[in-house]
């Protein structure tokens, strides 16, 4: 489901914003900061089907396969700030896993950079 399809269902930008804010209890910051824009998020295999809010359900379905936080925002239609709060809750509950590339903390080494150059030239 994409932001586009929610528009087709006739949700106004406003109504789709109000609900997530009430879901986040007015919080604008997540309880933890594990989610950079390019962090990869994937839904944890669910052991027992937990009852989840439809918004969380939507997020879990979009990240059935690893997907970046930015793409998750784009495809779920949630603004980044809201998404991060919801993701932090899902992470606390063990319902998603997150991986942030080591390249966010440290520049890739020369060999990696040469590989990247080669691949870009081949595109």
């Amino acid at each position: 489901m994409s932001a586009g399809s929610s528009e087709e269902e006739g949700w106004s930008a406003e109504s789709s914003l109000i609900r997530p804010y009430s879901l986040t209890g007015g919080r604008t910051r997540p309880s933890r900061s594990d989610f950079s824009m390019t962090s990869q998020v994937v839904a944890a295999p669910s052991v027992d089907a937990q009852e989840v809010d439809p918004e969380l359900e939507l997020i879990l379905s979009v990240c059935a396969r690893p997907v970046s936080v930015a793409e998750l925002a784009s495809r779920s239609g949630f603004p980044l700030g809201v998404l991060r709060v919801l993701l932090a809750d899902l992470l606390d509950r063990g319902q998603v896993m997150v991986h942030t590339s080591g390249w966010e903390r440290q520049r890739p080494d020369a060999q990696t950079l040469r590989m990247v150059l080669e691949r870009i030239r081949e595109l």
């Binding site: 824009m37 390019t38 990869q40 994937v42 295999p45 690893p66 896993m97 997150v98 590339s101 390249w103």
Partner: peptide, 15 residues
């Protein structure tokens, strides 16, 4: 991160 190994998690570069 994915023990089943079905969906490898890529490393990312940001520009």
């Amino acid at each position: 991160m994915d023990p089943a190994g079905q969906s490898p998690v890529p490393d990312t570069l940001k520009i």
